Simulated scan of single mutants.
Amino acid sequence: MPIKNRLADMSDEITGWRHHLHRHPELLFDVHGTAAFVVERLKEFGLTDITTGIGRTGVVAVIEGRTDTSGRVIGLRADMDALPITEASGVDYPSENPGVMHACGHDGHTSILLGAAKYLAETRHFDGKVVLIFQPAEEGGAGGLEMCQDGLMDRWGIQEVYGLHNAPGLPVGSFHVRPGPIQASSDEFEIVVTGRGGHAAEPQTTIDTTLVASQIVVTLHSIVSRNVDPLKPTVLTVGTFETDSNQSNIIPQTARLTGTMRTLDPDVRGLVETRVRRVAEDTAAAFGATATVTWTPGYPVTVNGAEQAAFAADAARAVTPEVDDNCNPIMPSEDFSYMLEERPGAYAFLGNGDSAMCHHPAYVFDDAAIPVGCSWFVELVERRMPAA
């Protein structure tokens, strides 16, 4: 049976949890209310091995199977934080926190893991232990890294770890997964160009930073097309361009660029950083200006284990016929990557239908995906750790 009857019966309850979380979104590590809601539910399920404050505000709980002859321990992860976006979704349970909304579906992820936890706590039809991981600060705060630095994997003896993310544009309840890289790394850079300001009517007395920075922007975009192997997907984007002047008749003293670089290949990260520095500094020097580059490493590449990705796909097939086990990777980044650097595992996409994209003010998580996601987590556990 694709979706377990008990999970189908619980669907309205789990949806209610999500709507509550949607109305009360919180940012980064400041997810105290969300974490408290999670702990309250876990206690209602009869769980007692619950630890708070991991990665500042993360929650970790353990469900023991009927037996533990194998010693196997699997981690299941959900992210809890929202985004600094003013909601325009039109739902009848909108955010009550102005300027903050669950625009990426983390309310759905948390509710799905809670639903799976309730089922597993009732049935315990597995051998070993399940470690539930409720993580803060996925949206730029590297909460996954902080949980790992707090000893997440070693303290609970996690051997494999699994997670999911809703995916707008894919059929509701479908699963997409692949071995190897599935989401890109994400690095940020800042370039400050310093020249010699002056009057716009006398450009010969200046070193025009607007012109220099413009040349840098154009040349930066040659890096991907001319320095990176075309078989290694890479994105470099300059997102902002500003100067220290807002007057049309002034040539500014400085100009500032910021941007991001995404890639699926760790080696490309180093190559592009080197080229960005060289392009910025040498282009500026050619005009008599100077350029200072600040490079800020972000999330690493999210890399699924081959065995675990295949297993995740098999578990998905037990839930839905719509499974792509070799989907295309995507270029947004994900800090589940830190957990996959410490333990083998897999990250999968759960279809959210024809919704607005994540991080859009009109985004809506499709509640029809909830029982499918819950069932997938349960199948992972019961298949990976069959009852003795």
Results as ranks from 00 to 15, higher is better:
205 T>Q: 14
189 F>Y: 15
100 V>H: 06
126 F>P: 07
88 A>V: 07
314 D>C: 04
171 P>N: 04
276 V>K: 00
177 V>H: 08
7 L>H: 00
240 T>H: 07
305 G>N: 07
75 G>P: 10
358 C>Q: 15
365 F>P: 08
45 F>V: 01
382 E>F: 13
226 R>Q: 14
106 H>L: 05
172 V>G: 02
224 V>E: 05
203 P>W: 06
281 E>C: 09
220 L>H: 03
119 Y>V: 04
284 A>N: 12
303 V>W: 05
158 I>W: 03
194 T>Y: 02
123 T>Y: 13
177 V>G: 11
266 P>F: 11
60 V>F: 07
81 D>N: 04
79 D>H: 09
197 G>N: 11
191 I>L: 04
312 A>N: 00
275 R>C: 05
333 S>Y: 00
217 V>L: 08
319 V>E: 09
190 E>K: 14
40 E>S: 14
216 I>C: 01
354 D>Q: 15
284 A>H: 13
172 V>W: 04
112 I>M: 14
18 R>Y: 02
149 Q>T: 09
24 H>K: 07
60 V>E: 05
131 V>N: 11
79 D>V: 08
255 A>Q: 13
310 A>L: 12
245 S>Q: 12
261 M>G: 10
58 G>W: 00
247 Q>C: 13
244 D>E: 11
5 N>E: 15
98 P>I: 11
362 A>Q: 13
322 E>Q: 15
97 N>T: 14
302 T>Y: 06
41 R>F: 01
30 D>Y: 02
79 D>Q: 07
33 G>Y: 00
214 S>G: 15
325 D>M: 06
80 M>L: 13
293 V>Y: 00
160 E>N: 10
163 G>Y: 05
134 F>M: 12
199 H>D: 09
104 C>W: 06
158 I>Q: 02
158 I>G: 02
327 C>G: 07
58 G>P: 00
127 D>V: 03
268 V>Q: 04
85 I>C: 11
31 V>W: 04
315 A>G: 11
122 E>W: 09
289 A>I: 05
18 R>E: 00
101 M>I: 12
17 W>Q: 04
110 T>F: 03
253 Q>F: 11
298 G>V: 06
135 Q>N: 08
74 I>N: 00
289 A>Y: 02
180 G>Q: 01
214 S>R: 08
75 G>Y: 10
163 G>I: 04
92 D>N: 14
39 V>I: 15
245 S>R: 12
78 A>I: 11
313 A>S: 10
283 T>I: 02
2 P>G: 09
60 V>G: 08
162 Y>P: 07
208 D>G: 06
7 L>R: 00
325 D>K: 03
134 F>D: 03
241 F>K: 02
164 L>G: 03
235 V>H: 09
143 G>L: 11
313 A>C: 12
66 R>Y: 05
110 T>G: 03
198 G>V: 14
2 P>E: 09
137 A>Y: 09
373 G>S: 12
372 V>A: 13
132 L>V: 12
222 S>F: 08
207 I>N: 01
179 P>L: 13
313 A>D: 08
81 D>M: 04
33 G>T: 01
192 V>I: 15
315 A>T: 06
290 T>F: 03
149 Q>M: 14
12 D>W: 06
168 P>G: 08
309 A>L: 05
249 N>C: 10
357 M>F: 13
366 D>A: 13
130 V>I: 14
169 G>C: 07
113 L>F: 12
2 P>F: 09
